[in-house]
Design a protein around this nucleic acid. Structure first.
Lengths: 134, 134
DNA sequence: TCTTGACCTTCCAGTCGCTGGAAGGCTTAA
DNA sequence: TTAAGCCTTCCAGCGACTGGAAGGTCAAGA
């Protein structure tokens, strides 16, 4: 398969696939004309990567997950640890965004949003702290 | 005030303040020795920026918000629109992360996390779709 | 046979918002 | 005088791509 076929089979952009080769996540063979030639195994790896990335794992985590996948002697605990760490990251990010959300909601609802200049949003931004230099 | 004073007054790293000058968000004067000299107005602007950034507004939104702040003839509707757009972004991101969170939770709880190789997390990643090339 | 268009290649630059580090100048106090 | 602690500029890197330019290859149709 050429890169275009792999792209449509996996849903990954060709650019991304080339990038993954660049950073050694896949190592497709080359045809005589210089085109990349992807085996079923390559295809499978790319699909794995696509799924892992879509779940938000970093590239380095994907690399580790793939090597665990290839390792018959792996301990599932190692996989689980990576996933738990990632889950923790996601949850912390959600909490952070929810706090932002509530602040923004307050600001948005407090602003009349008309053609007058008075604006509690700007007041909030402008009123923020400047620590005295002691 | 020199950059170090402004940094400790606003909580922004000196590097960040220089960067903000680079992209024309502030225009501090220069002392004879070449050091940046910040007025109270500069300080105020930087505090405004710091607060806006901490609420997650992009740099370009901050730029717009600052120019609205400076504009006596502004309509609060313009400010509100920016904030609402940002709030929408935050809410979409939260939804996205929550969906990730629930998938990850399922995967994590389904994995025994012991020293055996069987792992539903890897199974999920590996089982993901490869579209047939028709 | 020629041409067209759809592939493919590499390489470089840009995204966003900083951040780190090197190399060097200035200021202040001991 | 010297040392510490400021300040300056400039360049490179982060993560994970993405866009675009310039050019090679291939298959189908006129």
């Amino acid at each position: 398969m050429n890169i275009g076929d792999v792209a449509s089979a996996t849903g990954l952009p060709a650019k991304t696939i080339r990038y993954y080769e660049d950073i050694d996540l896949v190592r497709p063979a080359r045809s005589e004309n210089g085109y990349r030639h992807f085996s079923d195994r390559d295809l499978h790896k790319l699909a794995f990567l696509g799924r892992a990335r879509s779940l938000g794992f970093t590239i380095e985590e994907c690399r580790t997950l793939m090597s665990l996948y290839d390792d018959r002697g792996r301990a599932s605990a190692d996989v689980k640890e990576i996933a738990e760490e990632h889950l923790g990251r996601v949850e912390r990010k959600i909490a952070e965004l929810q706090s932002l959300q509530s602040t923004l909601k307050l600001l948005v609802t407090s602003c009349h949003g008309n053609d007058r200049p008075e604006c509690p949003i700007l007041d909030d931004l402008a009123g923020a702290g400047i620590k005295a230099v002691v």
